[in-house]
Amino acid sequence: MRNVRTLLMVLVAALAGLAAVVMASRWMVQQSAGTTTKVAVATADINLGQRLAPEFVKLVDWPRESLPPGAMTDIATVDGRVTKASVMRGEPILESKLTPAGTKGGLSAVIAEGKRAITVRVNDVVGVAGFALPGSFVDIIVNTQKDTGRTDAGQPEQSISKIVLEKILVLAVAQEVNRDETKPKVVNAVTLEVSPVEAEKLDLARSVGSLSLVLRNQVDPRPVDTAGATKRSLLNEPVLQAATPAPVVRVVQAVQRIAEKKLTGQCVGVISGMQQNQECF
């Protein structure tokens, strides 16, 4: 009888413990369901300008307290959109990283409104040794002949190097637009994002001289205003002063003096036959 009572107590305790576990589990599920939401995240690394497809995105539970602004909660709203920034695997798909609905993929999708894309040819030196990567900013230097319309000391005007464009965004190097890589890439062409006016200046600059890229700090907004560098300023040579032409007034005064001397000189009358002349000395 005592064994039966003990066994009954153990059975009741086990049932009570099981019920407590079930109730606690349900409470935790309810609590977690109220504090999380479904968020679309990338299932693989997605490059800039790539069109999204359902296989690139999945829904996962995300805490409501740390939900990033603009997070997408429905895969249907993400399908067919184009990224204007790279997205890493497991990163939430944000509206700020997507182009407007209906935009086609490719480089044209990432060009800012009012801007244009232009490609310039570079080499391993001009391209800042491959460190001019997509997303970085560069200045453009042109080396050309300074057009002054005159010569100094019989020598033609020297060439000049000058910064003509500042803080130009690099959109792509060769055919790659991925902005997440930091490894240098030596390429033969760089695509830059410029305004229409800057595009005209850049096109003229590459036709009148050679171009070089100057890598600059991404957070440095200060413009510069230089006079350009010439061979004379580089070697710190003195500027030759051109000879000053003689004033015209001196020549006029000399002519007047000669004329006055002739008029005030001695004159002699000369008679030749029936003709009479006057000769002045």
Rank of each mutant, 00 (worst) to 15 (best):
R2V: 02
N3F: 12
V4D: 13
L11N: 06
V12F: 15
V12A: 15
G17K: 05
G17T: 14
M23Y: 14
S25A: 09
T37H: 11
K38H: 11
D45M: 02
I46Q: 11
I46V: 15
L59M: 05
D61Q: 11
A71R: 07
M72H: 11
D74N: 11
A76K: 10
T83F: 03
S86H: 01
G90L: 08
L98C: 04
A101C: 00
G102T: 04
R116E: 13
V122E: 01
V122Y: 01
N123E: 12
V126T: 12
P134V: 04
V142W: 02
N143Y: 02
Q155Y: 04
P156E: 02
S161L: 02
I163Y: 00
I163P: 01
L169K: 13
D180G: 14
T182E: 05
K183S: 09
K185L: 11
V190R: 03
E193R: 05
S195Y: 05
S195M: 07
R206E: 02
S207W: 04
V214A: 14
V214M: 13
L215I: 12
N217R: 10
Q218E: 12
L234Q: 06
E237Q: 10
E237F: 01
P238G: 05
Q241K: 11
P245H: 06
R250C: 00
R250L: 13
V251M: 11
A259H: 12
Q266C: 06
Q266R: 13
S272Y: 14
E279T: 12
F281K: 13
